[in-house]
């Protein structure tokens, strides 16, 4: 069976060890996590996990069922029609060509968010695939540090 990439959102109680329950399930059953983000849902006692995973159809089905089975889980959304974004922060040396970097960033919905004596920091928020393109284009400006935020997604 063919491996597919899937974005899954989990709405779960915002209580202690719920992150361990979710991540432990992936580790214990040998499922893949490409990225995982988690934050509380405003005005509720819930948290939202966004997990990017890979597996064949059978594995993906098991992942959603096992996630649903957790007592703390309210809802599991296997995204199909979604808007998906990932944030990335990159630090460049201030000696690089700032105009070029800025132009590159604006091609990817981003820009410079901090400029210091020795370095500038840029932020991009885009689809994971476009983040990859951006990162390879940014290589020529010798990035000092790259921090990816993991995917968040919302159903259309």
């Amino acid at each position: 069976m063919q491996e597919v990439r899937r974005v899954i959102s989990v709405i779960a109680m915002n209580e202690s060890s719920v992150l361990a329950r979710v991540s432990g399930l992936f580790a214990g059953r040998g499922y893949n996590i490409e990225s995982l983000t988690v934050a509380p849902i405003p005005k509720s006692n819930l948290s939202r996990f966004t997990i990017v995973t890979k597996g064949n159809a059978k594995v993906i089905e098991q992942i959603t069922k096992q996630l649903n089975k957790l007592i703390s889980t309210l809802k599991v959304i296997e995204h199909e029609e979604m808007v998906e974004k990932e944030m990335v922060l990159i630090k460049f040396s201030a000696n690089e060509s700032l105009a070029d970097i800025k132009a590159l960033c604006s091609a990817y919905n981003g820009g410079i968010v901090n400029a210091g004596e020795n370095s500038v920091i840029v932020m991009i928020a885009d689809e994971s695939k476009r983040i990859e393109y951006f990162l390879s284009a940014a290589q020529r400006y010798n990035p000092i540090e790259i921090v990816r935020g993991g995917v968040v997604a919302i159903e259309r």
């Binding site: 202690s16 060890s17 361990a20 329950r21 432990g24 214990g28």
Partner: peptide, 12 residues
Amino acid sequence: GISRPCTKHNYL
């Protein structure tokens, strides 16, 4: 932590 994978649910 230890019993998470071998309980239906657990509480501290």
